[in-house]
Computed example of a mutant assay.
Amino acid sequence: MSVKLGPNRYGKAETRLVHVAREGPVHRVKDVNVSTSLSGDTEAVHLTGDNAAVLPTDTQKNTAYAFARKHGVGQIEEFALLLARHFVTSHPSIHHARVEIEEYGWNRAGPHSFVRDGGEVRTCVVHHDRQGDSTVVSGLQDLVVLNTTGSEFHGYIVDEYTTLPPTRDRVLATAVTARWRHTGETASYAQSYERTRQALLDAFAGTHSRSLQQTLYAMGERALTVCPEICEVRLALPNKHHLVVDLSPFGLDNDNEVFHAADRPYGLIEGSVLREDAPDARFAWE
């Protein structure tokens, strides 16, 4: 039997980094989680343990901190591009860099006081290779949304194991994970993020849903319509079931007012929506 080394990468996962921009009496905070992954000339280290071509993961961590001091942390996509390009251009043995960043929001409570935002987490994944090609995928996760009406589910396959009753009025709730691929470099990632986020929310709120799949497509379609700088949206929507509680044992009716919010099991709806002329994604989703 013969074997060979397959695709591989190495890096430092989840470097927690907080940057405080002290611009006079009013400060700004960026709270991020940075993960770096590198690939290239790694055959020797795997086959013989020769580390000559390896950039230590501790060095990758230190680079994130040093770049925060040298360049600040503005838009996470721009910071990720800085890091990825640095790794590839500074070390010949590194052919490809992947940088993933999560950003945790803080709301201002004073010139130098902040309250942690309990909402969604902003994300990005950036790739850069030694041919000079870059890809940027922005996104968010844990954006929890709910419609109290305007959702149905009926007309599905019924077999001997089906117990779910059809409904023409239900609560529809989900925790949105969304990723969107930029066609090229975007002039303002901050504005693009806000436009895309709002498009997703508008579509969720404005779609009379006969299935969560229909809502998923409407959300992706709206984002692509509003934001010309992106070409593909991928969504994961867990169906956070709200079950009507039977109050008849207590002599009470329940006209879709009292629910049990079940956390598991849950339906999971996933899909992508893209422009017909979207360029090849290459390594963007890896």
Rank of each mutant, 00 (worst) to 15 (best):
R195D: 14
H208M: 12
L274Q: 13
S192I: 05
I101Y: 08
A218N: 13
T148S: 11
C124L: 01
E160G: 09
W106M: 13
T183K: 04
G132H: 02
V73P: 10
A21H: 04
H182C: 08
G72V: 06
A203W: 11
L5T: 02
T36F: 08
F114I: 07
A223D: 14
N33I: 03
T177I: 14
R98P: 15
G271R: 05
A218G: 09
L243E: 06
S35C: 02
T162G: 00
S134T: 10
R210D: 14
T135G: 04
P92K: 06
L224Q: 10
P56E: 13
E14T: 10
A203M: 08
S93Q: 04
T215D: 15
R69L: 13
I76W: 00
D202I: 12
N147S: 08
D277E: 01
L5Q: 02
A13K: 08
R168E: 10
E194I: 14
V233A: 10
P92W: 09
L83I: 01
L212T: 11
S134V: 08
E257D: 08
L224I: 02
T63H: 12
V121S: 15
F283N: 10
H154L: 08
I94G: 00
A178M: 07
W180V: 15
D159R: 03
L47Q: 11
Q60I: 00
